[in-house]
């Protein structure tokens, strides 16, 4: 992952700042940087979103394609995750350099979405055992400025919110052969319910305290961090420790509590901005990549 080198006194300054609840950029330990969210940025996807969190820049595209359901879940569709680390973000990602990180993030996303309630997969089923919608969620990492996981999960949720899947009907003729009919109206589509889609909150242990939304500099001062995925109701769906350091069980519980609290407000803020964007409708000026 992209990382920065800091001198010892710089690290000390950051650690002391966290202890006093005043980080380098003036935030408290539980504050996020101001995020920028825009959906519907890529026209040839079913749903897309771009999230900028400080210097972290994430683009997510969701493409709905027809496929066959998995054998163990014949009446459900499924999600596929793929993370591409662009060499624009850091030269380290050149060639196959970003593959490891990409797989790690994709696996984390699979785990986060593994819970039954996160997305209503049954609604993605068209024809049990034969046809279902497969949602290919492609994450593109454009810039790394710390706190990748949170930004990615926010972007994934925004993109899923934006996803519109065309409505199809299954027609069966007398001989029993089935035919799939696509609705003529391009606006006739189904939307996903993203109320229970979890977001990841990364808590980085710095000194004796933990912070959310660590910058690259803060990540360099942190030995261990805890990734937890929280739903809008505050339910914890998965948890993962990253980093080479170890965590005290007591501090893990503390971090979980903080994560749940922060996660809830994160969902509220995200939902608010998504609703705001939707209410603007076509009157909103699209910014995209030239903004």
């Amino acid at each position: 992952m992209a990382s920065v080198v800091l001198s010892e006194p710089e690290k000390l300054y950051i650690v002391h700042g966290v202890q006093e609840d005043l980080r380098v950029d003036g935030r408290g330990c539980e504050d996020y940087r101001c995020a920028e969210v825009e959906t519907d940025v890529v026209s040839n996807t079913s749903g897309s979103a771009r999230v900028k969190l400080g210097h972290t820049d994430i683009l997510v595209g969701v493409k709905a394609e027809m496929g066959t359901p998995k054998l163990e879940k014949p009446d459900e569709g499924y999600l596929e995750f793929f993370v591409d680390c662009s060499a624009n973000a850091t030269p380290e990602f050149e060639g196959r350099g970003g593959e490891e990180l990409g797989t790690e993030i994709a696996n984390t996303l699979y785990r986060v979405f593994s819970s039954e309630s996160s997305v209503d997969l049954k609604s993605l089923c068209i024809n049990p055992r034969e046809h279902c919608w497969v949602l290919y969620v492609d994450v593109l990492l454009l810039e790394c400025g710390g706190n990748l996981f949170d930004a990615i999960s926010i972007a994934v949720k925004a993109a899923l919110f934006n996803t519109r899947i065309p409505k199809v009907r299954v027609l069966e003729d007398e001989e029993g052969s089935k035919e799939i009919e696509l609705s003529d109206d391009p606006y006739d589509c189904i939307r996903l319910n993203v109320d229970d889609v979890p977001c990841i909150v990364t808590l980085s242990k710095i000194g004796y305290r933990h912070v959310v939304d660590a910058t690259l500099q803060e990540e360099a001062c942190s030995l261990a961090s805890l990734l937890i995925s929280v739903t809008s109701k505050g339910a914890l769906t998965s948890m993962k420790k990253v980093g080479k350091g170890s965590l005290d069980p007591e501090s893990i519980f503390e971090m979980m509590e903080t994560g749940k609290r922060v996660g809830k407000s994160l969902h509220i803020a995200l939902q608010k901005i998504l609703d705001e964007e939707e209410s603007l409708g076509t009157s909103r000026q699209k910014v995209g990549f030239l903004g």
Binding site: G28, D31, Y32, A35, I273, E277
Partner: peptide, 13 residues
């Protein structure tokens, strides 16, 4: 209390 703000991007003039 966690402070989280999100906004829509603003186009450059």
């Amino acid at each position: 209390m966690a402070a989280i703000t999100m906004r829509l991007p603003v186009a450059r003039k």
